[in-house]
Design a protein around this nucleic acid. Structure first.
Lengths: 225, 225
DNA sequence: GGTGATATTAGACAGCAGTCTAATGTATAT
DNA sequence: ATATACATTAGACTGCTGTCTAATATCACC
């Protein structure tokens, strides 16, 4: 086989974690750390610039979260690289959003070095790698997906649970889909613009989106409102 | 960590395949082949008898198929072992049925020795292993729900008449509905931002709207794109 | 009584969106 | 040839969007 080194791009905002990971990667002969990014936007940029084999991506990132960044890399840029999500979040929503965005693997922070190398090696060969802690969550949900499709009554309440939107957030999302601006939403709900902005911000976070237009599109297509 | 050998149970009806796998396992120091079964019923029996770490299970088996056997081992007997499906079937139904039954990994016959050991090692640590050939099938079914690549050839000309949008404007509107920013649209169409802004402005004028979010909503609801 | 989730607000800030004006080039129809 | 429609670009400007930080208040739950 090709004994070429695996080129890795590291995207992580916390300095110490990034440093630790960089150390680990650089001390592993078969890996080659090509670049490090400290936020999502920079990560996307560096991905297209260095075209790494594997991107080790944190979820919680400034500028652009890891899931949005993954989506951009996979769907828009269509880069041929494996994205390994590296995070402390083990909730269903994040896991699914990550895979939906095109992630190839999902590993928990706090994993051992052996687990990390195993995961990197696996996704580098284009196979999927799922951490033991969350394997059950993913696999059990695959079962559910079949069951849900037969019952066919999912959309509204399921979608609600799916993204964890609160009642107020759903209300705001609904008004966004009606085409209202923040100012108009504020007037309608009799709250300040700050409040509306906070709600909109929370919605975008939970849906892993970057602007209200995308939120409206997703809400319409997935029947969230 | 524990350098204990990984105890493996092999369940495969085809003699030559079973022999080849047994050879491979026995020639790998870290593995210990505890038993071999030639049908599903025997496999279940041996699983409870030997309590292996990993069961390498074929799907097409006499007496009881591999998926039923897996379900029995996982759900009824609740044995703490990893089941690695080993099969030539790559259709969605089998894959999902396998995971639904509680399989921890899915590997194709015809995989390399390296892939096999990688898969065994991975499921032995209770992580999920999905073969590269079928990773796409599994992940894409998770990723779906979003892809609406409808080739609307009819409504385009009607919409054109309706609002008097030009070909270019419809193209831009379509990209707005995809959630792209002016910058991104400009890059995609290889024009300046000024041009994109002009198109967007014309679209808004013709649709009697004030912003791109409303344009996306109208386009989606009225099937303009 | 403490903890977590939700809702509320403010201010400051960077950046994008959309408007306006103005100009140029091309194609098509009359 | 000349009008009309379409595509392209620039510069400047206003205002809205979304982020970040920070604080307060309520309610349910343990």
């Amino acid at each position: 086989m090709t004994d070429r080194k695996i080129n890795i791009l590291l995207v992580e905002d916390h300095e110490f974690t990034r440093l630790g990971l960089a150390m680990k990667i650089e001390n592993t002969p078969k890996y080659n750390l090509v670049a490090q990014a400290t936020d999502g936007a920079q990560g996307v940029m560096m991905a297209s610039q260095y075209n790494p084999d594997v991107i080790l991506m944190d979820i919680g990132l400034p500028k652009m979260d890891g899931i949005s960044a993954t989506r951009k890399i996979k769907e828009e840029l269509k880069l041929d690289c494996a994205v390994l999500m590296f995070t402390s979040r083990d909730n269903k929503e994040d896991i699914f959003a990550a895979f939906k965005a095109g992630a190839d693997g999902y590993i928990m922070k706090g994993s051992s070095s052996e687990t990390l190398t195993s995961a990197i090696d696996t996704v580098a060969t284009k196979a999927a790698w799922i951490d033991s802690q969350i394997a059950r969550v993913v696999l059990s949900s695959i079962q559910n997906e079949n069951d849900i499709q037969t019952t066919a009554t999912k959309s509204q309440k399921e979608a609600n649970k799916k993204y964890g939107l609160t009642k107020k957030e759903l209300e705001v999302l609904s008004l966004i889909v009606d085409g209202l601006s923040n100012q108009e939403i504020s007037e309608k709900l009799v709250v300040s613009i700050s409040t509306t902005k906070a709600h909109v911000h929370n919605i975008l976070q939970k849906l892993y989106l970057t602007d209200r237009t995308k939120a409206a599109i997703v809400a319409l297509k997935e029947g969230l409102v």
